[in-house]
């Protein structure tokens, strides 16, 4: 099962490697990891995507909690939550038709063209990972010059606050 785990951690040098080191040392699966400081600059917020049986995920949560720098851990996938990923895509534009196609797809997927060059566009889009996947799959792979995905960030809905 895929789980999305949110955690608050002391914003100190090496905090990230404590988390990533835990995953590699214990052979836990990690699909993506995002991290940035919060409104309180002494704390960082991480979102982690992992896969595993219930037993393994239970261990992951316990082991994360056990890290001395970790302040709070929550399995967002246990309740209602929102997930978003940011995509930056550099696309080759060959002719006016291609331009038009990209603009149309951007409208449908609610993306934006944020950089225009003679031969390429950069498109920005946010959404669930599924939506990002879907957008990428509608494009001709030969036209994609660079794919940059942020990895998932997540937040609980309503009263679910970490």
């Amino acid at each position: 099962m895929r789980h999305i785990i949110a955690l608050l951690i002391e914003n100190e040098a090496g905090a990230l490697s404590r988390v990533s080191g835990l995953f590699s040392a214990r052979a836990y699966n990690i699909e993506s990891l995002t991290v940035a400081p919060t409104e309180d600059p002494s704390l960082s917020r991480m979102t982690l995507i992992t896969r595993g049986s219930d037993n393994i995920v239970e261990q992951i949560l316990k082991q994360l909690n056990k890290l001395v720098d970790v302040v709070k851990v929550m399995d967002l996938s246990e309740g209602i939550h929102i997930e978003r990923e940011l995509l930056l895509l550099k696309i080759r534009v060959t002719n006016a038709n291609a331009c038009h196609d990209i603009k149309r797809l951007c409208d449908i997927f609610r993306g934006h063209i944020i950089d225009v060059n003679k031969d390429s566009y950069v498109v920005e889009m946010t959404g669930s990972s599924d939506k990002v996947d879907a957008f990428i799959s509608t494009l001709d792979p030969h036209l994609i010059l660079e794919t940059v995905r942020s990895g998932v960030s997540g937040i609980g809905r309503g009263q679910r606050i970490l």
Binding site: A13, G14, S17, R18, G21, A25, V68, D69
Partner: peptide, 14 residues
């Protein structure tokens, strides 16, 4: 030293 010992300490500090 902090990197090398990280997996075998309860915690470490620089």
């Amino acid at each position: 030293a902090v990197g090398i010992t990280r997996p075998c300490v309860k915690h470490n500090f620089l």
